[in-house]
Computed example of a mutant assay.
Amino acid sequence: MKNNQTEIIYFGKLEHNGWSMYLAATDNGLCFVGSQNKELAEVENWVAKKRASAMLVHDEEKIHPYKEQFISYLDGERVELDLPIDLRGTPFQQLVWRELQKIPYGKTVTYMDIAKQIEKPKAVRAVGAAIGANPVMIRVPCHRVVGKDGKLTGFRGGIPMKESLLALEREKVLEDVHGAP
Rank of each mutant, 00 (worst) to 15 (best):
E80W: 10
L30E: 00
E7Y: 09
Q5T: 14
W97V: 01
N134R: 10
I131H: 08
A25I: 02
P91C: 06
H64G: 08
S35D: 12
F32G: 02
I103Y: 03
P160S: 04
V43M: 05
K162R: 06
H143Y: 08
E175A: 09
T110A: 12
A130W: 02
R144Q: 14
P91S: 10
G128F: 00
E169C: 14
N134H: 06
K38Q: 15
G179F: 11
N37D: 13
K38Y: 12
P84S: 08
E80A: 14
Y66K: 04
R88Y: 12
V145R: 05
L74P: 00
G89T: 03
E169T: 13
E99T: 11
Q69H: 05
V57I: 13
D113Q: 07
P181F: 10
H143K: 06
A123G: 07
R144D: 05
E15R: 11
M137H: 10
G147L: 06
R170L: 09
Q5R: 14
V146I: 13
I138K: 00
Q94E: 09
Q36L: 09
C31P: 01
L100S: 05
E7L: 15
V127I: 07
I131T: 10
P141M: 03
P160Y: 12
K122S: 15
G158K: 05
M161E: 01
Y66D: 00
E15F: 03
A133V: 10
I9R: 08
K49G: 11
F92G: 01
L168V: 11
P91H: 05
E163Y: 05
W19P: 02
N134Q: 07
K2A: 15
E77Y: 05
R125F: 13
H58C: 09
L168H: 14
A48E: 10
V96Q: 01
D86E: 09
V146F: 03
A180W: 12
K162M: 01
G76I: 10
Q36I: 01
F11G: 00
V43K: 00
K162W: 00
E44H: 04
A129E: 02
T90W: 04
V79C: 10
G157H: 05
Y105V: 02
K50P: 01
L165V: 08
Q94D: 12
G76C: 11
Y73M: 08
I8P: 00
A133N: 12
S53I: 11
I8T: 12
W19D: 05
N37F: 12
Q101W: 03
I71M: 12
C142Y: 00
K13N: 09
T153D: 03
S164L: 09
L40M: 14
T90G: 06
M1V: 11
E61L: 09
F155S: 04
T108P: 04
N3V: 07
E163P: 02
R156V: 04
E171D: 15
F70L: 11
S72G: 13
P135C: 07
P91W: 09
G179D: 14
M161P: 00
D75E: 15
I138M: 03
L30K: 02
L165M: 12
N134M: 06
D113P: 03
S35V: 02
V33H: 02
R144T: 03
G154C: 07
A25C: 13
V109M: 15
N37R: 15
Y22W: 13
